[in-house]
Amino acid sequence: MKRSKIMELGVGLFMLAGILGMIFLGLRVSGLTLTSPGNTFTLEANFSNIGGLKPRAQVTMAGVTVGRISSIELDTDWYDARVVMELDGKLEDRLSRDTTAAILTSGLLGEQYVGLSVGGDPETLADGDTIRDTQSALVLEELIQQFVSNMVSD
């Protein structure tokens, strides 16, 4: 009887370890957060070229992650890309209306992300607003083309 108690304890610990492992994989490895989805607000931004930007990419401000991209679609009115961002609810009504969004690259081979920087307008952006002032991703071919045409005109 005593031996079976030890065995039951072993099985219990084993299963507990499995559950704890799943929690570790969820929180620490895949970065799930337990914050409620109501704690965010969305902003939109239109870019003429998004390069390699993907949904779930980071949105940063001064290098600090403040949100992520929830969807990217083609805006058929203007034929540019409409990027929908989900930002931390603490920033709602605190970003000035002339905030700029730029698509940046982390490192030489890193992923692309959106960087926001605030302006000086006293008016602020609310949930669902669109950022007007945007800067597209750098596309290598365009850069080379520019470089070559500058060389020719010199």
Binding site: M22, G26, R28, G31, L32
Partner: peptide
């Protein structure tokens, strides 16, 4: 954390 998706990968 930014590249691992809980449903898709785990």
């Amino acid at each position: 954390q930014s590249s691992v998706d809980f449903v898709g990968d785990v």
